[in-house]
Amino acid sequence: MTDTSDLPDFGGLQIRTRSLHDQVVDRVRDLIIEGVLEPGSRIDEARLIEELGVSRTPFREALRTLAAEGLVIVRPSRGSTVRKLTPEDVYSMLEVLGHLERLAGELACARASDDAIEELEALHQRMMEFYATRDRMPYYKLNQEFHSRLAALSGNATLVEMQANLQARLKRIRYIGNRKSDFWAGAVRDHEEMMSALAHRNGPRLGEAMAAHLARTWERVKESL
């Protein structure tokens, strides 16, 4: 019998509806984002399969999905590892994402409907509720949705696809950007500025706010890489 006493504790994670692929993906993704599965570490498939209460097939399918997102490296017959980004990787991706989101902000102000802007404002307010209670993971997930939906308001399918690809690869990075209270407070101020600019349909102002937000994200994460 394999000794698992020195392995990470994944307690409380069991999935009871085993057929739901998305649940497996979400659980493993959260472990990566929170750093329970550390960058560069080998994924202990047997242990996770047992802890999550799923069979090997849906777990392997989940790993393939996470590999497509850029979070996992799957090597047939050699096991899977959590992708580790270099500082150069992170900087270059944030740099490009900043330009994409600048354009998204400018286009959203010109093209979004009033109803769509109101819906994004409601999402923003839900984020602020989680910030008020310092509930970091729900805030983070809504934050990811906020950026995806704002990109969608651009009405540009190519931009949406490119933004989604980079955002997926930067999930862990965006999460650690709020690890300190002053970093998180700064990110919240950025979002308040974004919503104000969008409400006034000021494209240049929103575009600048989006780009500056990504530039500050680099400043918040670079020391931890």
Rank of each mutant, 00 (worst) to 15 (best):
T2I: 10
T2Y: 08
D3E: 14
T4L: 09
D6W: 10
P8A: 04
F10H: 03
G11H: 08
Q14H: 14
Q14A: 14
R18Y: 02
S19Y: 09
S19V: 02
S19M: 02
L20C: 07
L20P: 00
D22N: 14
Q23N: 15
D26G: 06
D26K: 10
G35Q: 06
V36C: 06
G40T: 04
S41H: 11
I43C: 10
A46W: 07
A46G: 04
E51V: 01
L52Y: 08
V54I: 06
V54E: 04
R56P: 01
T57N: 08
R60F: 03
R60M: 00
E61F: 01
E61K: 10
A62H: 01
A62Y: 00
A67C: 05
A68M: 09
S77V: 11
R78I: 00
R78L: 12
G79A: 03
S80R: 11
T81E: 11
R83F: 11
R83G: 06
R83S: 07
R83V: 10
T86S: 15
D89R: 11
V90Y: 02
L94R: 10
V96E: 13
L97V: 00
G98K: 14
L100K: 06
A104D: 13
E106C: 03
A108R: 11
A108V: 06
A110S: 03
A110Y: 02
A110D: 10
A110W: 04
A112G: 07
A112R: 05
S113G: 15
S113N: 12
D115L: 14
A116V: 11
E118T: 09
E118K: 13
L120W: 02
L120S: 10
A122E: 00
A122Q: 04
R126W: 01
M127Y: 02
Y131S: 13
T133A: 12
R134T: 12
D135V: 07
D135H: 13
N143F: 14
N143S: 15
Q144E: 13
R149M: 05
S154P: 11
N156S: 14
K171C: 01
K171P: 02
Y175C: 09
G177D: 09
G177S: 14
R179N: 13
R179C: 06
K180C: 05
S181N: 02
F183W: 07
W184T: 12
D190L: 02
E192H: 05
A197R: 09
A197Q: 12
L198D: 05
N202A: 14
P204Q: 05
P204G: 06
G207V: 01
G207I: 00
E208G: 12
E208D: 00
E208N: 07
M210G: 02
M210Q: 13
R216F: 02
T217A: 04
T217V: 08
V221F: 06
